[in-house]
């Protein structure tokens, strides 16, 4: 989450005070991400140091000091909006590792481990959906945040479902061991990149 760029986005509408930025940040992100005012001022100081925002020099540090975006800040913001986040490297996913560890342990029922995670994720999705049910039709930023969370959790459940099915099939029709070991994932990924 880039607080830095979110603040630049808010300042692109015109000069604002620190406490105002905090309030607007929370309102525009559906009140889902809390931000403390100290974090806002620290971020603003760094943005100012980097020449991306400027403040009214006359005013003392504190709530009466207004900030505005500089030309360099506007360029940085436009660039950031269009830069895709880094999704190329597989993340070290804790859930995937848990399932792989469970698979290697003969005393553990991997399907039961998968179901425990599936239930937890569905319960989380129920909570997010309840939020959408209550307010989503009226609060656009909140609906967008909720949709993003639901999509993310749903994709994890889909992975659990496919892992569940794959493991079940593997028991029924075990694959014959191949003569030559398959190249390791890391090597294969490295070749592709």
């Amino acid at each position: 989450m880039s607080v830095r760029h979110a603040l630049l986005g808010l300042l692109s509408e015109g000069p604002k005070y620190g406490h105002q930025l905090r309030q607007e940040f929370e309102a525009r992100t559906g009140d889902v991400w809390a931000l403390n005012v100290g974090q806002v001022y620290t971020t603003l100081q760094r943005l100012e140091r980097d020449g991306l925002v400027a403040s009214d020099d006359e005013a003392a540090e504190g709530p009466q000091k207004a900030f505005r975006i500089t030309e360099a800040g506007a360029e940085e913001l436009a660039e950031w909006l269009r830069t895709p986040p880094d999704l190329t490297t597989p993340p070290r996913d804790e859930l995937v590792i848990k399932v792989l560890v469970a698979l290697a342990m003969p005393t553990v029922d991997v399907h039961e481990v998968i179901q425990a995670h599936r239930r937890y994720l569905v319960e989380l999705m129920q909570q997010w959906t309840r939020l959408k049910e209550d307010e989503g039709e009226f609060d656009l930023p909140l609906a967008l945040v909720v949709d993003a969370e639901l999509g993310r959790l749903d994709s994890v459940i889909r992975w659990l479902d496919s892992a569940d099915g794959r493991l079940k099939r593997a028991v029924v029709e075990p694959t014959a061991p191949t003569a030559a070991p398959a190249p390791r994932l890391r090597r294969r990924l490295a070749v592709r990149r």
Binding site: M1, A34, Q127, W128, L131
Partner: peptide, 16 residues
């Protein structure tokens, strides 16, 4: 199990 209130989710939700 019946989910707790949605408010619980927000206060314990992701932080920036």
């Amino acid at each position: 199990v019946p989910p707790p209130s949605a408010e619980a989710l927000i206060s314990s939700g992701p932080k920036p």
